[in-house]
Amino acid sequence: MHPVRKQRLILVLVLVALSSAAVGFVTYAMRENMDYFYAPSAFAAGEVPFEKRIRAGGCVVPGSVQRAEDSLDVQFVITDGEAELAVVFDKILPDLFAEGEAAVISGQLMPSGVLRADQVLAKHDENYTPPEVAESMVSHEGCTDGAKI
């Protein structure tokens, strides 16, 4: 093999190896920032990890919202029609958050089985339901949209 071709081959192989390593490092770093979506029935089945940040979605059960009088703490329950999940949130809820409406919650599952939320996203109009919620929900009588959710 000619020395110039050999140098080019080595250069190409080094570039491929370095770019593969860079892609691997980026993928590994992104893995820490991923939120996995689970329906309340997955929580009831014990399929949800405790150590990861997760997202859950469902319909806020009517009559389940309890607000603390001396702080921003709110407790409520979401359901997918098959199971229910208790949620604790200590920040200001979105204006469109209401009982009987769809919501997506991001946070961490505590060993007690309660989801400690750090973000609550509410359904933004009467025709929209987040795709993750729509796929996981079955018809639920307490939801405003009924079978749409």
Rank of each mutant, 00 (worst) to 15 (best):
M1F: 13
H2N: 15
P3A: 01
P3Y: 00
R5W: 12
K6S: 14
K6C: 07
Q7Y: 08
R8V: 14
L9K: 15
L9R: 14
V12A: 10
L13F: 09
L13Y: 03
L13G: 02
L13Q: 06
V14S: 08
L15E: 09
V16E: 09
S19T: 11
S19F: 10
S19W: 07
A21Y: 10
A22C: 05
A22Q: 09
V26W: 12
T27G: 14
T27I: 09
M30C: 02
M30D: 09
R31E: 13
R31C: 00
E32L: 01
N33H: 11
Y36I: 08
F37P: 02
Y38P: 03
Y38C: 04
A39F: 10
A42Y: 08
A42L: 02
A42C: 03
A44N: 12
A44H: 14
G46E: 03
E47K: 14
E47P: 00
V48M: 03
V48I: 11
V48H: 02
V48N: 05
P49S: 09
F50I: 15
R53V: 08
I54V: 15
R55E: 14
R55C: 08
A56T: 15
G57N: 13
G58C: 06
G58Q: 04
C59I: 06
C59Y: 03
V61A: 06
P62S: 09
P62H: 04
G63V: 11
G63I: 11
G63T: 12
V65W: 08
Q66S: 12
R67D: 05
R67S: 05
A68I: 01
E69S: 14
D70H: 10
L72Q: 15
D73W: 04
Q75D: 07
F76E: 08
V77P: 00
V77C: 01
V77T: 12
V77N: 03
T79S: 15
D80R: 05
D80H: 05
A83V: 05
A83C: 04
A86I: 00
A86P: 02
V88P: 00
K91H: 09
I92A: 13
I92F: 02
I92P: 00
P94W: 00
D95L: 05
A98P: 03
A98L: 01
A98D: 14
E99N: 03
E99R: 00
E101D: 07
E101K: 10
A102P: 02
A102W: 07
S106T: 14
Q108C: 01
Q108L: 01
M110L: 12
M110C: 01
P111F: 06
G113M: 01
V114M: 01
D118K: 08
Q119K: 15
Q119C: 03
V120Q: 07
V120G: 04
V120E: 07
L121G: 08
L121M: 13
A122Y: 14
K123H: 06
H124R: 15
D125C: 13
Y128L: 02
P130K: 03
P130V: 06
P130A: 15
P131N: 04
E132V: 02
E132N: 09
S136H: 09
S136W: 10
M137W: 07
M137H: 05
V138N: 08
V138T: 11
V138G: 14
H140S: 08
C143I: 09
C143P: 11
C143Q: 09
T144M: 05
T144E: 12
T144F: 07
G146V: 10
G146K: 13
A147K: 11
K148G: 13
